[in-house]
Design a protein around this nucleic acid. Structure first.
Length: 442
RNA sequence: UCCUGAGUAGCUCAGCUGGUUAGAGCACCUGACUGUUAAUCAGGGGGUCCACAGUUCAAGUCUGUGCUCAGGAGCCA
């Protein structure tokens, strides 16, 4: 029997196995909030219902002690979960001494230091269950829409986008290898073989970013589709995000309640979402007096009207998103600020067929994607202009040499998505063991 | 990496203008209590005040350097 479905055993005697979440003893009655991984159940040990020896055991329990409890399930409105267990017998596996995480508040450093224990706390437990649902929703969505899972390698010989900093390691006597920062280039090759594919795994960025939205190791799902143009790509991104949010709403009401999440905001996440071109976004910024804050050479900051061609920062994205209660896709960015593999817009060669999806409620960038450059000469030209090693991209260029087709894809950050849906205040809370600048333990 | 702030009991923090034996709540231990749910009440133990150097009759408190952490920026998902 698990606590998750204890209601089905009302009136029956059951065995629960778990850990003491909280413990209160009061004369000849003891309250044990038992945690079994699926939920928490209040257990009542009363002196009249058990032997003297067992009752003394019940009174001696400490936080996170492990035990096996027998008792009768009763409906009880005074109990937190609606049901409680009238204890008839209990056996202690271990008495835990001095559990470090107490009922009072703790600082972020202490909690992160004790991440292996912090995961047992009810909010962290709820977040991890939502995370599992998000991952399942992603897999169900793609598997049910004709996609095949084609994972990309994590050890790679070159940079995908050539811009961000990579983790480096020695690969036998062949030379340097790098931890992948994106599976996209390989996904493109896979899409040319299987049509519609997705790659799903951890990615690594050695950037020195220190914000509540960044991890050095995070999970990303990247679909890649042959014969998809940018519009098809944006449609698919919206479908995916709608599916994930609605799946979590269907599956995790209890967890969202534990997290005190306003679910009406999530219920609203249904297509159509909003779309805006980069050029329209710049016009909006200038109409609403959201300037670009520019660092001058002497260290002073100066505010200037937002110039077309500059990439958006957090200030611009948040200002734009304040008016939206659903995700917004911004598309057709200036080619200078985007990666080499993105296809130029045939109608305006100054922009590329790229898109970013921003979430509401300060969720930030959830998705980045594009239609890919499918012309051999144009792609080669971009690789050379970005000073990337052409030899390393020979296999990638081959995809444009042997039966090239229009194709598109995007990457969705799992942690950013879970952070948004759960309302967690920091991204370190939405991955079991966060990897951040200055932290690799536990 | 840059900017800002913090580091005092196991945890979260207070500690004034430098001054005698450094405090509180929680946690822990002992006792009381049959409906608690951050239980309550009484008692008890618990300190390298981040480190090093300096100023001073005197430093948790002032100064410098280093270390650690947090928040933010840029970059990104």
């Amino acid at each position: 029997m698990t606590i998750e479905n204890i209601g089905s055993a009302e009136g029956k005697e059951v065995t629960l196995r778990g850990w003491v979440y909280k413990h209160r003893s009061k004369g000849s009655i003891a309250f044990i909030d038992l945690r079994d991984g699926t939920g928490i159940c209040q257990c009542i040990a009363s002196k009249n219902d058990m032997s003297e020896e067992k009752f003394e055991m019940a009174k001696s329990l400490t936080q996170e002690s492990s035990l096996i409890i027998n008792g009768i399930v009763k409906k009880e409105d005074r109990a937190p979960g609606g049901y409680e267990l009238q204890v008839t017998d209990l056996n202690i596996i271990q008495i835990a001494k001095d559990y470090p995480i107490t009922k009072k508040e703790h600082g972020p450093d202490f909690l992160t230091e004790h991440r292996h224990l912090w995961l047992r706390s009810s909010k962290q437990h709820a977040i991890m269950r939502v995370r599992a649902s998000v991952v399942k929703a992603i897999r169900d969505f793609f598997d049910g829409n004709g996609f095949k899972l084609m994972d990309s390698p994590l050890l790679t010989p070159n940079a995908c986008e050539g811009t961000t900093t990579l983790f480096e390691t020695q690969y036998f006597d062949i030379g340097k290898a790098y931890l992948s920062q994106s599976g996209q280039l390989y996904a493109e090759a896979s899409a040319m073989a299987l049509g519609r594919v997705y790659t799903f795994g951890p990615t690594f960025r050695a950037e020195l970013s220190k914000t509540r939205k960044h991890l050095t190791e995070f999970w990303m799902v990247e679909p890649e589709m042959a014969f998809f143009d940018l519009n098809d790509d944006m449609d698919l991104a919206e479908d995916l995000v709608e599916y994930i949010v609605q799946y979590v709403l269907k599956t995790n009401q209890k967890e969202l309640k534990t997290l005190e999440r306003d679910t009406t905001k999530l219920e609203n996440i249904k297509r159509p979402f909003y779309r805006m071109s980069y050029t329209e976004a710049v016009e909006w910024l200038n109409k609403n007096n959201v300037p670009l804050i520019k660092k001058m050479p002497d260290g002073r900051e100066e505010e200037i009207p937002f110039p077309w061609g500059e990439d958006f920062g957090a200030v611009q994205e948040e200002a734009i998103m304040e008016q939206f209660d659903k995700p917004l896709i911004i598309h057709r960015y200036p080619s200078e600020v985007k990666a080499f593999y993105m296809k130029r817009d045939p109608e305006n060669p100054k922009v590329v067929l790229a898109m970013d999806m921003l979430g509401p409620e300060k969720a930030g960038e959830l998705i980045g994607g594009s239609q890919r450059e499918d012309d051999y000469d144009l792609l080669l030209e971009r690789i050379i202009r970005e000073n990337l090693p052409v030899e390393d991209f020979q296999w990638y260029l081959d995809l444009r040499k042997y039966g090239t087709v229009p194709h598109s894809g995007f990457g969705l950050g799992v942690e950013r998505t879970v952070k948004w849906i759960t309302g967690a205040s920091h991204i370190r809370e939405v991955i079991p063991f966060p990897r951040m600048i200055h932290r690799i333990v536990p």
